[in-house]
Amino acid sequence: DEEIEKWIETLLKRNISLRVNGKDLEIGSEEFKEWVEKFIKEV
């Protein structure tokens, strides 16, 4: 979905790490990609 890709790009540009389930996810890491894929499937 384009919306999500733009959102991810924005996050990448800002180099933010997300806190997911109490863990810091490094943007661009494998864990982050897995989380994004799960997130996309749920939406």
Rank of each mutant, 00 (worst) to 15 (best):
L11Y: 01
L18N: 00
L25Y: 04
E26W: 09
I27V: 11
K23N: 06
E26Y: 08
E2G: 11
F32I: 03
F32P: 00
F32G: 02
D1I: 15
K33V: 06
I40H: 04
S17K: 11
K38W: 09
I16W: 00
F39P: 00
L25N: 02
S17V: 12
W7P: 00
I16G: 13
R19M: 05
L25R: 02
G22F: 06
K33Q: 10
I8N: 00
L25P: 03
V43G: 04
S17M: 05
G22Q: 04
E2L: 13
K23F: 10
E37T: 09
I40R: 04
V43F: 14
K38L: 07
E2H: 10
V43C: 15
E42M: 14
E30V: 10
I40V: 08
L18W: 01
V20D: 02
W7Q: 00
E9F: 00
S17T: 10
I4D: 03
N15L: 15
K13E: 14
F39G: 01
L25S: 03
N21V: 06
V43H: 12
I40T: 04
E34K: 12
F32H: 01
L25I: 10
E31D: 07
E30G: 06
L25K: 02
I4F: 13
K13A: 14
V20Y: 02
E9L: 02
I16R: 02
L12Y: 03
G22A: 03
R19L: 08
E34I: 11
L11F: 09
N15D: 09
L18V: 10
E5L: 15
F32N: 00
W7H: 00
F39T: 04
T10F: 06
W35F: 09
E3I: 13
K6W: 13
V43K: 06
K6V: 04
W7E: 02
E30M: 12
E3W: 15
T10R: 13
I16S: 06
W7A: 02
D24W: 11
V43Q: 07
K41T: 08
F39D: 00
V36G: 00
I8M: 05
E26V: 14
N15K: 14
D24R: 09
I4N: 02
L18R: 01
K6T: 07
K33R: 14
G22T: 03
E31Q: 08
E31N: 08
L18Q: 01
I40S: 02
E5Q: 13
W7V: 04
E42T: 11
K6F: 09
K23I: 12
T10Q: 13
E26S: 08
N21E: 07
E34M: 10
T10M: 07
D24H: 08
K13L: 10
E26L: 13
V43S: 08
K38S: 07
E37V: 08
W35A: 05
I16F: 00
L12I: 13
E42S: 13
I27L: 12
D24S: 10
K13H: 08
S29M: 09
R14S: 15
I16P: 06
E9Y: 02
R19F: 00
E34P: 00
D1V: 11
I16N: 03
K41I: 06
G28P: 05
F39C: 09
L12S: 03
I4E: 03
V43I: 14
D24F: 13
E5D: 11
S29P: 07
I40E: 02
K38D: 09
E9M: 02
E3K: 10
E3C: 15
T10H: 14
L18H: 02
R19T: 09
W35H: 01
E26F: 12
E3V: 12
W7N: 00
K38G: 10
S17W: 02
